[in-house]
Design a protein around this nucleic acid. Structure first.
Length: 285
DNA sequence: CGTCTTTGACCTGCGC
DNA sequence: GCGCAGGTCAAAGACG
């Protein structure tokens, strides 16, 4: 929307709870994933196990043939309502709205309860306010989100979880619709948005919101999770003891982000997929 | 028959 | 207050 709100592409945003790379549009919460290819970015990205291709200013997975699709970019996105008010400074990517929510876990778990689906439900039945649990004036609580871009011909990539599509909307300034998915696990709060990049139709932008509270239902491809599972799994406390700094886990003390300037060991241990992707310096300790 | 997708309607938030 | 855009609901239909 407002270009004035944009920050320079390739900027490394930091906040007290997250970091992200890319051109963040604070106005519409979009991230354009424009990497300038600076040494710093390369450094950060390389610690995720990805290499920056200097000629394309993007980074590509260098040795992940097990993954479906071709991971092009990845980042944590902790955009929230508050972000929209964040000053367009490159170091002030506020991600505190949801994080500061008194009880994000409660809100998330309850929000998945069909009986508590607050808003939608097309205002037909003026009936039971049980659907209007969200109190008046109380802002919608948006959980930390995590998105990444994937070069893929299929929109909805397998990730080991089962998803139910609950909506599709045309997106402004994009010829491609955005699809909305919800984890089929009734107790799981995770949602997922899938859309194609308007600039590169081969790129699928997947945004996860929330945390899985269960294991994957099964691993396609002979037990190897694809990249989506790798990321989705990070949202699941049940799967990994480590989380992205941008994903606030209510049970965990909030830690300031540790930009990978430090020296992360890139040796994956038994940290599972996370260990293969998230540098130790990026994790909560 | 159960599950999932499609799709139009509705709600909310936000900018003007 | 109005209009727009994003997000969600839920009925209907498709599918295995």
């Amino acid at each position: 929307m407002d270009d004035k709100e944009r920050s320079d592409p390739g900027t490394c945003f930091t906040s007290d709870s997250s970091w992200t790379l890319g051109d963040h549009d604070a106005a519409d919460e979009s991230v354009n994933f424009l990497f300038g290819g600076s040494d710093r970015e390369s450094s950060i990205l390389s610690q995720f196990g990805w290499n920056l291709h200097p000629e394309t200013s993007s980074f590509a997975d260098h040795d992940r043939s097990d993954l479906a699709g071709n991971i092009s970019y990845a980042f944590t996105e902790s955009t929230t309502g508050a972000l929209q008010q964040a000053a367009p400074t490159t170091t002030n990517l506020a991600a505190s709205a949801d994080v500061s929510t008194p009880n994000p876990s409660v809100s998330s778990s309850s929000s998945e309860d069909p009986t508590e689906k607050s808003t939608g439900s097309g205002g037909k039945p003026p009936e039971i306010p049980s659907k209007l649990v969200r109190k008046k004036g109380q802002k919608r609580i948006r959980q930390p989100r995590f998105a990444f871009m994937t070069k893929s011909e299929v929109d909805h990539l397998e990730d080991g979880y089962r998803w139910r599509k609950y909506g599709q909307k045309a997106v402004k300034n994009s010829p491609f619709p955005r699809s909305y998915y919800r984890c089929t696990n009734s107790k799981c709060t995770v949602k997922k948005r899938v859309e194609r990049s308007s600039e590169d139709s081969t790129v699928v932008i997947t945004t996860y919101e929330g945390q899985h509270c269960h294991q994957t239902v099964g691993f396609p491809r002979g037990g190897v999770l694809n990249h989506e599972a790798a990321f989705a799994g990070h949202l699941s406390p049940a799967i990994s003891p480590y989380y992205y700094p941008g994903i606030h886990m209510p049970q965990e003390p909030r830690e300031p982000p540790i930009l990978p300037d430090a020296t992360p060991s890139q040796v994956p241990t038994d940290d599972g997929l996370l260990g293969d992707i998230v540098p130790p310096g990026m994790r909560s300790k």
